[in-house]
Design a protein around this nucleic acid. Structure first.
Length: 458
DNA sequence: TGAAATGTTGGGGCG
DNA sequence: ACGCCCCAACATTTC
């Protein structure tokens, strides 16, 4: 049997559920199709496209080593997948499922077109530790609080990695080169902004994390200066590494940090499940009473936040790390999200969009879930009255000011005493720093946020 | 996966 | 020695 394997967000030959089954069932032709509808989205980030292009090059090289070549096409998937299936005389098309509403609709359309043309379709779960729908609460409803969700997931056996695929079939589909970023209409991101995409680089990142990150993960993961994270977020986003492989190798090391790390992986599952069961979160609050929030409209404040010029060192450091690298430490994601919504009183969707515009790991479900958590509008959200104080967050999680100085060079000479509250230094000192005044005063904004949220409480 | 406001307690300075 | 006050440290409540 000839099987066209449609790669999507699973850009690897290793531990790939659908691909492994295809290799057991027949001769596998590797295929990838980029889509104008996705590349044309207004919230796409150049760093993220760049990551995909790197990953495709790496995947193409792996396909060559496996005795084949990666067939590439560009266009509406209903047309390109059908065309590839016909041209390669495939009996079946296999792929791994995606769970975003738009992708599910697309996949249904592709499946219908293939079946109508007499081509078999098989779809697999690959992307998460637990498939959407596989865990429900006692009432049969989806979980909307993380801890019970995690406990229910932990009742299930951890999914085991599947065999790597080493042989693919030769075929006559046209050989195309992976497009260059500029040809797709994107400006090349700065050097430090591109983490190298691809399964090869992903394996290196996992090895590095196991070698020197995991031991510190428990104690230092909340310290943005420490780089104790895995840096695998974009790899999990694009499937350049399998979440099963990551969990299995981390847990094989044992210990509290390993268990903690896997429980963080389950947040990714949780928000994918939330989006799957409650697709309305894509555009509105999970708890609809919060759709009535009356956000401020102020493009100057929004611009200051985006540019990292709010006058709050932690906020500005986080926003500048994002702009410069396509990444932001998770602690900072929470701080800047709290600041946008609770200090600037601006709509969380503006922040969500900005993150998608810049994050290499930008993922609809995780990003939306994180923003709704911070804004207090979502499932298992922090209560609206939990408001981060950016100064205290800085003093707690960046006690030496190391992270701030790294990303806000104007403050590189500021003493530790004032690094998180430069507004308290003398005017003479402040004049030497060329650092913006606070755009708002936290202590003044907090009651305004409480009033804004209080107004919509049911 | 907060922080501020408020309440309580206990040690020490001091008359 | 005793009572009073202050306030830091910690706990609890509130937003």
């Amino acid at each position: 049997m000839r099987i066209l394997f449609w790669f999507r967000k699973d850009l690897r030959l290793e531990d790939n559920a659908g691909l492994a089954q295809a290799a057991r069932d027949g001769d596998v032709i590797p295929f990838y199709s980029s889509e104008p509808a996705i590349l044309g989205r207004p919230d796409i980030a150049a760093t993220r496209v760049r990551f995909v292009l790197d990953s495709l090059k790496d995947l193409a090289a792996a396909c060559e080593r496996a005795g084949s070549h990666l067939a590439l096409d560009h266009g509406d998937a209903v047309e390109t997948v059908l065309r590839a299936a016909r041209a390669s005389q495939a009996d079946a098309v296999y792929w791994n499922d995606e769970y975003e509403p738009a992708l599910r609709a697309r996949d249904e359309a592709v499946e219908r077109a293939l079946r109508a043309a007499g081509v078999r379709v098989r779809r697999f779960h690959d992307r998460l530790l637990v498939a959407p729908g596989a865990v429900m609460n006692k009432a049969g409803d989806p979980f909307v609080v993380y801890s019970p969700f995690r406990r229910a997931c932990e009742e299930l056996p951890l999914p085991v990695p599947v065999p790597d695929v080493t042989r693919l079939a030769p075929h006559d589909l046209p050989r195309k080169r992976v497009a260059r970023l500029a040809r797709l209409g994107f400006a090349e991101p700065p050097k430090e902004a591109s983490w190298e995409g691809g399964a090869t680089a992903a394996r290196g990142r996992l090895d590095a994390f196991l070698a020197c990150g995991l031991d510190r993960y428990d104690s230092e993961r909340d310290l943005p200066a420490a780089s104790a994270g895995s840096r695998l977020s974009a790899d999990l986003r694009f499937g350049t590494i399998s979440v099963r492989t990551v969990a299995a190798r981390v847990l094989a090391r044992g210990g509290a940090a390993a268990a903690k790390f896997v429980s963080e992986l389950r947040w990714r599952d949780f928000y994918a499940h939330v989006l799957f069961h409650f697709p309305h979160v894509e555009t509105g609050a999970f708890r609809s009473e919060f759709d009535a929030l009356e956000w401020e409209v102020d493009s100057d404040l929004l611009d200051a936040w985006r540019a990292g010029r709010t006058g709050y060192p932690m906020v500005d450091a986080g926003m500048r790390e994002l702009a410069a690298t396509g990444f932001m430490h998770n602690r900072l994601r929470m701080i800047v999200a709290s600041f946008l919504t609770k200090d600037l009183l601006l709509d969380w969707r503006l922040g969500e969009r900005h993150f998608m515009n810049h994050l290499a790991d930008g993922d609809l479900a995780s990003n939306n879930g994180g923003w709704q958590w911070a804004a207090g509008t979502g499932t298992d959200a922090q209560p609206y009255f939990r408001i981060f104080n950016p100064q205290l967050q800085g003093e707690k999680f960046d006690p030496e000011g190391e992270y701030v100085r790294r990303w806000v060079p104007e403050l590189s000479k500021v003493s530790k005493r004032y690094v998180h509250r430069p507004w308290e230094a003398t005017p003479i000192e402040r004049a030497a720093w060329d650092y913006p005044e606070r755009v708002v005063v936290h202590e003044d904004q907090r009651p305004l946020a409480l009033a804004m949220y209080g107004a919509v409480r049911s």
